[in-house]
Design a protein around this nucleic acid. Sequence first.
DNA 1: ACATTGACCTGAGAGC
DNA 2: TGCTCTCAGGTCAATG
Length: 266
Amino acid sequence: MPELPHIEVFRRHLDATSLEKTIAEVEVRDEDLVKGVSPAELARRLEGDRFVGSRRHGKYLFAGTGDGPWVLFHFGMSGFLSWFEDPDRETDYPKVLWHFEDDGVLIFDCMRKLGQVRLVEEPDDWISEKGLGPDALSEGFDRTAFREALSGRRGYLKSALMNQEIMAGVGNEFSDEILFQRKLHPKTKVKALSEKELEAVHDTLTHVMETAISARMETENLPGRFLLPHRDEGAECPRCGGEIRRIEVSGRGSYFCPECQGEEPE
DNA sequence: ACATTGACCTGAGAGC
DNA sequence: TGCTCTCAGGTCAATG
């Protein structure tokens, strides 16, 4: 579930709750989720320090300590961040907890354990080592950059949108939303689109993601015409009332409206 | 070089 | 009630 808009909402939540507070204890409940560093080392390098700022790159979130290391969060399919003022409150599957002095606790919850927490010295180095493309909403990644990044691709547009080396941040759910808003079938190939159409896809991507962030990813705040709350086989299309269908595209469950988005190309 | 598929992991929800 | 099956979703290694 967590894609760029979710990550940005987590980031703002972290900024609003967890900056400039001394970290009293880092509690690792499940060390499977902590990568590249032992739980003891993670605690040693953070305890007594504090977070001073954060940044996002695609689906990755970094919380910086100023002179010290950054904590990297990746949320896998089921991860999220929660903060409670009451230090005894917990989520259902807490994996790593940052207990602050003067109360307050930041919880990394990850039911399906595909997320991770690690320490990095410099986010930019880590991003380039990883081979991640530009953050999908970053300043420089405009319609031209988007079109050029996709040129020559032979596969599905959906796959290209989700390819983190081309651009970082779009996942399965938002790729469906972008295709729905553009009225493109999930099996549309990149090659089938003109330059103009590709640029329109970029504009839609930007609009959809920014709108979702403004709504803080809360269903009731999303525009009525969004597919997201109706991503279910047999659900009603929020645009035409047709029936939402599910197909597999490159092994990913893809939801779309055959009425709006047409039949399978070719 | 690029594209696609399956494994990873675990619990929710559906169906019987 | 309780069991079994499918599905969710991001990433990476393996395969095409």
